[in-house]
Design a protein around this nucleic acid. Structure first.
Lengths: 347, 347
DNA sequence: AGAAATTTGATGTGCGCAACTCAAAAAATG
DNA sequence: CATTTTTTGAGTTGCGCACATCAAATTTCT
């Protein structure tokens, strides 16, 4: 059984012959160059479909000698997950090279809307494709739309701006991620009642807010026996998280679980260790980092809800390339999974 | 910050100039053609490294006009997961086409060692790359090694034959998968004592056996309060599974959980529904299929441990291509994850 | 009708490499 | 030394496409 009947090697020449036109005309149709009548364009397109013509990617890349330029706008600072993404993007250098793509990684303060919007505006005309970890703010949305209007392919990364006209979002469904964390905590508690503490980075970040929303949803629906404490904001900083969790532990005698929507797991681990409560309090957090891996292995964290930064880096590259060079996006390959990581399936 | 300093467009010509030899000699070294002295080869290789030369994939593919032929040997029958893999491979047709690769999907009875070994032997010389869902049996191992000796790149798919000389294994760590299922059941039980029933496809299959091993390991180490019943074999058949689970339910009053190492989830769901025990017995199974998805959504199954057939199909293709054309394998991209799927993070 | 604008054809060049041939140079051999 | 063998150089060709250019044919406008 052959998986595809016509391994046909259909070339542009064949299309031209089948359509009864010249190579130049086929080229004009395919590459959207001006000066082709509708009738002829239809003839060509029908021939393309009839012959199932698919351009040989290698030849197209080779011929298109002008490289594509991509920019990736990431948050500065010491966020480990973002550093992982940056590393994975850099690790793709050979992939980019082979496809004649240059990728610049730019760091900025994505938490300030004005700064981010200004940075985005500065990219217009200098890049064919832009990926950005975006703050969901009207000014940022406007900057994204301006870029799109200028003909730049824009994708959001990790944190989305759904109301903008970005072509694609590369990242997980954070509501589903929050729900997943909720289900894990609910089931792991096995019917025990008590209070659950929530440590978040900042409620102003869309991804964190969505996780909180999904988490609260599940807990209210499915586990009414547990009470959620109001979220405390630690800005993903281990020091702050440590102080916050220490306070939670002393103030809440019936604390049974902790949910951390962001980073800074080390601070939570430290606070729990200080209080000698490390394996008594059920902890679930997000993202796999050296810290969270350690805490998962020693039993402090029961589970992590994670997204694969390598997958996201590669997906971003593929999607941008597809958008810029007008080729199809393989559906399914670009869906980033909400992963559940236990000690036993640690990658 | 540019992610790679030398977007250098180093070509073969540059390498030749730097090494002080001709293009033909560089070509001989790179493509392993005979007639080059060691000294010259060293000069060329050092120039390649010094300039960080990386061949432009597009040009290489374009020039190598002879297509590569791959074969994928899958089990026949009505295994849903295998059908999914086959579908995902077929869905890659454009990817193959663009890279001048033909991929034949062959079905066979992989459960019979002689049949499988004969099939494998028949592929020698006809394909550059072979992927096979392999039974771990001495005759199969010998057949794989013969293929490798004949110069064919061989990868195992889903189920490995570690003792063979296959170049790569595309699939999950099934011991880790079994451990993950064990941890999920253990934690979800939340300290409750009782008996756990195990339904397996066949203990003769390496992947199922490894899952059982990992599962038993975790349960013995971490959850001594629960007792494992001896595994019953249903051959992944819903009808058999239904009968087996019905018997388990009547024979075991203190049954608290069920672990299904393979397919046929529908049979388990039916038996539980018959007995009105659907949400009382904790169920964990493997692989995401329409049946298991439904049972996860209606709460019969608490979680699934899964592998992504799309990822495996794509990984297989990339690995085979890398092996056949001597290009590097991106580490990390080819590690298939052991996924945990709850109702909330269902893709 | 003629002039202008639009549409199409014909043809060429080059992308970087693989694969090949043939001859020249260098090294090893008798 | 001459002769064989090995090694190297210098080319050519073609892969399929993108991107030009210029001329010819056709349509549209005045």
């Amino acid at each position: 059984m052959n998986s595809h009947d016509s391994q046909s090697n259909v070339t542009l020449k064949d299309v031209a012959a089948a359509a009864g036109v010249s190579l130049a005309t086929v080229d004009r149709v395919i590459n959207g160059r001006p000066g082709v009548s509708d009738k002829t364009a239809r003839k060509v397109n029908s021939a393309i479909e009839r012959l199932n013509f698919q351009p040989l990617a290698a030849a197209a890349e080779l011929a298109r000698s002008r490289p594509s330029r991509f920019a990736v706008l990431l948050p500065g600072g010491d966020n480990r997950f973002m550093k992982d993404i940056a590393d994975h993007i850099r690790a793709q250098a050979p992939w980019f090279r082979a496809r004649r793509i240059t990728a610049d990684i730019l760091e900025t303060n994505v938490f300030d809307a004005d700064t981010l919007a200004t940075e985005l505006a500065a990219l217009a005309g200098r890049y064919e494709g832009v990926a950005v970890v975006a703050l969901d703010h009207p000014r940022v949305r406007a900057a994204i739309d301006d870029l799109v209007d200028a003909g730049t392919a824009v994708v959001t990364l990790v944190s989305d701006v759904p109301s903008s006209r970005r072509a694609h979002y590369v990242g997980i469904d954070n509501i589903a991620a929050g729900r997943t964390a909720g289900s894990l905590i609910g089931r792991f508690l096995g019917g025990r009642a008590g209070r659950v503490g929530i440590v978040t980075g900042s409620a102003a970040l869309r991804d964190h807010a969505e996780r909180l929303f999904g988490f609260g949803q599940v807990m209210a629906e499915e586990y009414p026996a547990v009470t959620l404490l109001p979220p405390v904001e630690g800005r993903d900083d281990p020091q702050q998280n440590r102080a916050l969790v220490t306070r939670l532990l002393t103030d809440t005698p019936d604390l049974v679980a902790l949910y951390n929507t962001g980073e800074g797991a080390a601070g939570i681990g430290a606070a729990l260790a200080d209080a000698g409560a490390a394996r008594r309090i059920l902890c679930v957090g997000h993202e796999l980092t050296p810290d969270s891996r350690r805490l998962l292995l020693d039993g402090t964290f029961a589970a992590l809800v994670a997204q694969d930064p390598g997958h996201e880096a590669r997906s971003m590259a593929r999607v941008l390339r597809a958008l810029v060079s007008g080729r199809p996006i393989v559906p399914g390959q670009e869906n980033i999974r909400v992963e559940v990581i236990l000690r036993d399936n640690l990658p």
